[in-house]
C-alpha cells in the first residue's frame, strides 16, 4: 500500500487527499485550517509527520510555496519525492515551483501535477484525467499508484518544465478567453484567438527550455478546454470584468482568488521580446490588462 502526504488545506488539497484515499493509499493530510475529522485520512499540522510519507504532494497557493517548501526541507532527505499541484511561476525570475522546491529542500526527485482535472471531480470521484510530469520514472510510478483508479486516469510526461509552464501559460490564455467572449467575439474569432495564443504559448515555453509539444497536449490544451468550460474560473472572471471596461483592481476583487496571470502576462511579454520572439497574442493580453477597449484589441488582432 502506498503512502502519500498532501500538504495544503484548501479545496485543491482536500480534493487531492480524497482522491488518494480513494485508491486505498494511506494519506497524511497536512493542513493549518480547521477541518472536519476524516476517517480516510490522517490529519496533521506538523510537517514532520507529513514527511513520514515518501511521496509528498504540495497543494498550496504559489505565493507561499517557497515558505512551505523551506519548512518541509527540514524534515525530508534525498529519498523523498515532492510533487506539486501549484499553478504558477515566480513572476520575478520566472522560476517554476519545482525550481523553488529544489532550492529550498534537498529533494531531487521532483514532479508536478497538471492537466484538465478539476478539484470538484477529484473531490467527488467523477471520472477525469490528470497529468504528472517528472524526469524521474519512480515519481511517475508513485503518483500513478497513489492516484489512479477507474475514476482517474493518470497520464505522464517526463517534461516537468513543460508541464509547469503549460499550467501557467494556460492561466494567461484563460484570462484572454473570458475577455474575448465578453467583448463579443464570435466562435470563429474566439477559436482563432485561442489557437494563436496557444501557438505563442508553445514558443514561449520552448524558449524557457520546455518541449513545445507539451503545451499542445493534455497539460496545455486539455487544461485550457477544461478551464474555459467553468463558469467561475478566476482567470475567466477577471477577463470578463476587464472586457466590461472595469479596472484590474475591480476584476481581482470579483475573482476573489489571487490571479497570478495578471502579474505574469507582462513579464512573459518582456521575456519573449528580450529573446527576439514575437508573441502577438500575448501582447494583446498585456494591452487588455492596460485597459484598452475590447473592440480595439480584437479588431486589430488580425491586421497586418
Amino acid at each position: 500500500m502506498s503512502q502519500v502526504a498532501i500538504v495544503g488545506g484548501g479545496p485543491w488539497g482536500i480534493a487531492l487527499a480524497r482522491a488518494a484515499a480513494r485508491t486505498g493509499a494511506s494519506v497524511i493530510h497536512y493542513t493549518r485550517r480547521e477541518t472536519k475529522e476524516s476517517r480516510l485520512v490522517e490529519l496533521t499540522s506538523s510537517l514532520e509527520t507529513a514527511a513520514r510519507a515518501k511521496l509528498i504532494v504540495l497543494a498550496v497557493p504559489s505565493q507561499v510555496a517557497r515558505e512551505v517548501a523551506r519548512g518541509l526541507g527540514d524534515h525530508v532527505d534525498g529519498s523523498h519525492m515532492i510533487v506539486h499541484g501549484v499553478r504558477g511561476l515566480d513572476p520575478e525570475g520566472l522560476q517554476t515551483i519545482s525550481d523553488i522546491v529544489r532550492e529550498e529542500t534537498p529533494v531531487r526527485r521532483l514532479g508536478a501535477l497538471g492537466g484538465p482535472v478539476q478539484a470538484a471531480e477529484l473531490h467527488h470521484g467523477t471520472a477525469s484525467a490528470i497529468v504528472v510530469g517528472s524526469p524521474y520514472p519512480e515519481v511517475i510510478r508513485a503518483v500513478t499508484s497513489g492516484f489512479s483508479g477507474p475514476w482517474l486516469r493518470v497520464f505522464s510526461t517526463n517534461d516537468l518544465r513543460g508541464l509547469e509552464w503549460a499550467s501557467a501559460l494556460v492561466g494567461c490564455v484563460s484570462l484572454g478567453v473570458g475577455f474575448a467572449e465578453s467583448a463579443g467575439a464570435g466562435p470563429g474569432l474566439l477559436a482563432a484567438l485561442i489557437a494563436r495564443a496557444m501557438h505563442d504559448a508553445g514558443r514561449i515555453a520552448a524558449l524557457a527550455g520546455a518541449e513545445e509539444q507539451t503545451i499542445y497536449g493534455l497539460g496545455g490544451y486539455g487544461d485550457l478546454l477544461a478551464s474555459i468550460a467553468l463558469e467561475k474560473r478566476p482567470e475567466v472572471v477577471v477577463g470578463r470584468v476587464l472586457a466590461q471596461g472595469r479596472s484590474v483592481a475591480e476584476a481581482i476583487a470579483e475573482a476573489e482568488l489571487r490571479v497570478e496571470a495578471i502579474e505574469l502576462i507582462p513579464r512573459l511579454c518582456d521575456f519573449a521580446r528580450s529573446h527576439g520572439l514575437k508573441a502577438p497574442a500575448f501582447d494583446g493580453l498585456a494591452r487588455m490588462l492596460e485597459g484598452q477597449p475590447g473592440e480595439d484589441i480584437l479588431g486589430r488582432f488580425f491586421q497586418v
Binding site: 502506498s2 503512502q3 515518501k54 511521496l55 523551506r70 526541507g73 527540514d74 532527505d77 534525498g78 529519498s79 529544489r102 532550492e103 529550498e104 529542500t105 534537498p106 531531487r108 519512480e138 508513485a142
Partner: peptide, 19 residues
C-alpha cells in the same frame, strides 16, 4: 549540504520508498 546548508545523507538519493 543542500542549498540551504542542511546536512543531507547522500545515500538517501539511491534509496527507494522502502529505504
Amino acid at each position: 549540504h543542500d542549498a540551504r546548508g542542511r546536512v543531507v545523507d547522500p545515500s538517501s538519493y539511491v534509496r527507494d520508498e522502502q529505504g
